[in-house]
């Protein structure tokens, strides 16, 4: 069942949004969605890392199939992705201390961002070819960034709202995410 690239993109960004439908990457999502600025930066970082790790994952998978060692899939994925991310992290720390400060402890946590490993695992299990994987990663990153930015906008606005004290914080973000997740259900079944 080959799908058009466009539908793969719509699927991974809107229908099966990584955050709102698969719950991937919730931790950074809760942390950095408070401000638009950090949200966009984080979105950029995740997009970058996703594209890299999607390509890495494609290569690794091909390699592991070649040497007939499927049992090494998970560990190789995570190790390669983690090291790539760590490189990025060091690079950012060196190049832009302000960006590093803004993303704070979440840069190392990109490594432990399920969205990135999830992407690698899903694209492999769906058996996408290189181009499809790339589009899939692009869609996933776009969806992640979209969700992040939408929530950041709402949270920024709710900074200036009389939110009951008990609800403030993670609970509020989760509730918004829940409502957004329902709104995204409107995209289900979307295909061109």
């Amino acid at each position: 069942m080959s799908d058009s690239l466009w539908n793969i993109f719509i699927g991974s960004s809107l229908i099966n949004n990584f955050v709102l439908a698969y719950f991937l990457g919730i931790c950074p999502f809760l942390g950095v969605s408070a401000k638009m600025e950090t949200a966009t930066k984080m979105g950029g970082a995740v997009t970058f890392v996703m594209l890299i790790s999607s390509m890495c994952a494609y290569g690794i998978h091909a390699f592991l199939v070649a040497i007939n060692a499927p049992f090494l899939q998970l560990i190789s994925f995570i190790v390669v992705i983690a090291s790539t991310v760590q490189l990025v992290e060091m690079f950012v720390k060196k190049m832009s201390p302000t960006l590093f400060k803004a993303l704070g402890i979440f840069l190392p946590l990109i490594t432990t961002n399920c969205a990135i490993l999830g992407l690698a695992l899903f694209q492999t299990s769906k058996g996408y070819n290189f181009l499809e994987s790339f589009v899939y990663a692009l869609g996933a990153a776009a969806g992640f960034t979209l969700a992040l930015i939408l929530i950041a906008g709402l949270r920024e606005q709710l900074e200036f709202a009389e939110v009951p004290k008990t609800v403030k914080g993670a609970a509020l973000t989760l509730l918004i995410a829940g409502i957004l997740s329902m709104a995204f259900m409107g995209f289900s079944g979307l295909s061109f």
Binding site: L20, L175, A177, G178
Partner: peptide, 16 residues
Amino acid sequence: PAGGFFTLAIWLLIFN
């Protein structure tokens, strides 16, 4: 998925 978000949020509320 939405229910997951809501349920967790409600548990967090209870803890709060």
